[in-house]
Lab assay of single mutants.
Amino acid sequence: TSQSKEFDPLGPLPPGWEKRTDSNGRVYFVNHNTRITQWEDPRSQGQLNE
C-alpha cells in the first residue's frame, strides 16, 4: 500500500495551507484563509531572521 502523503521533515503545514503541484510538476502552496498562492513553503518562512 502506498501512502498519499509523503513524509515531510518540516512537519505538517500550518492550518489552512495546502501543498499542490502544478502541471509542470512544480510544488506550490495555497493559503485557503487568504486565498493566496506562493512558491515558498510557509513552514520555512520566518526562520530566516532567527
Rank of each mutant, 00 (worst) to 15 (best):
T37E: 04
Q3C: 11
D41S: 03
R35K: 03
H32D: 14
T37L: 04
Q47G: 13
V30G: 04
G25R: 08
Q47P: 11
D22Y: 02
T21C: 06
D22V: 08
S23H: 02
Q47V: 13
L13P: 03
F7G: 10
P12A: 14
G11D: 14
E40Q: 12
K5Q: 09
T34G: 11
R43P: 03
N33I: 15
P15Q: 13
E40T: 10
H32W: 07
P12I: 04
L10Y: 06
S2F: 14
G46V: 12
K19T: 09
T34P: 07
E6C: 02
W39G: 06
V30M: 13
L10N: 15
Q45G: 11
T37I: 03
P15E: 15
E6A: 05
E50L: 15
I36G: 05
R26M: 12
P42V: 01
L10C: 14
Y28I: 00
G25F: 05
R20E: 08
P12D: 12
N33G: 10
R26W: 07
G16H: 14
R26V: 09
G25H: 05
P15N: 15
S23F: 06
K19H: 04
D41V: 03
R26L: 12
T1C: 02
P15V: 15
Y28E: 08
T21V: 07
V30N: 05
K5D: 02
P12Q: 14
S4E: 15
K19P: 06
D8C: 10
P42R: 00
Q3A: 07
L48G: 13
E18L: 10
P12W: 00
L13I: 05
Q38S: 09
T34Y: 03
L48C: 09
Q3Y: 09
Q47A: 12
P14C: 04
S4M: 11
I36T: 02
W39N: 02
N31P: 01
S2M: 11
Y28L: 07
H32N: 00
E50T: 11
V27L: 11
E18R: 04
P14W: 03
T37D: 04
R20K: 06
P42Y: 00
E6Y: 12
L10F: 03
R20I: 09
D8T: 10
F29C: 01
N31W: 00
L10I: 03
R35H: 14
E18W: 04
R26Y: 13
R20L: 09
G16D: 11
T21Y: 07
L10A: 14
V30K: 02
S44C: 13
L13A: 02
N24Y: 07
P12C: 08
Q47Y: 09
N31S: 04
Q47E: 12
V30L: 06
G46M: 12
E18Y: 08
P42D: 00
E40W: 06
G16F: 10
G46D: 15
Q38C: 02
Q45I: 04
G16C: 14
F7P: 02
Q47I: 09
R20W: 05
D22I: 04
L13M: 12
P42I: 00
S23K: 05
G11F: 01
P15A: 14
P14D: 03
S2T: 07
P12E: 13
R20N: 12
I36W: 12
N24K: 15
D22A: 14
P42Q: 05
D22T: 14
G46Y: 09
V30I: 08
R26P: 03
T1G: 03
K5L: 04
G46N: 14
V27A: 13
L10K: 13
D22N: 11
I36R: 06
E18S: 10
R35S: 12
E50D: 02
S44F: 09
G25T: 07
E40N: 04
T34L: 15
R20H: 08
D8G: 08
P15W: 05
N49S: 12
N31V: 00
S2W: 02
L48A: 11
R43G: 02
D8I: 09
S44A: 13
S23C: 08
N33M: 15
I36N: 06
L13R: 00
N24E: 15
P14M: 05
S44Q: 11
S2G: 04
N24M: 08
G25E: 09
R43K: 01
Q47L: 14
R26Q: 14
G25K: 12
S4H: 14
Y28W: 05
S4K: 14
V30A: 10
L13N: 01
V30S: 06
L48S: 12
E18V: 10
S23M: 06
L13V: 05
R20S: 12
R26I: 09
S4G: 10
H32T: 08
S44H: 12
T37W: 00
K19M: 09
P12M: 06
E6M: 11
P12H: 09
G11V: 08
H32Q: 06
R20A: 10
E40P: 02
V30H: 07
L48K: 15
D22L: 07
S44P: 14
S2V: 04
K19L: 05
P14E: 06
V27R: 09
L10H: 15
K19D: 14
N49M: 05
R35W: 01
Y28R: 05
W39I: 04
T1L: 01
L10T: 10
E50A: 14
F29T: 03
T1D: 02
W39F: 15
L10P: 10
E6R: 05
N33K: 06
T37P: 04
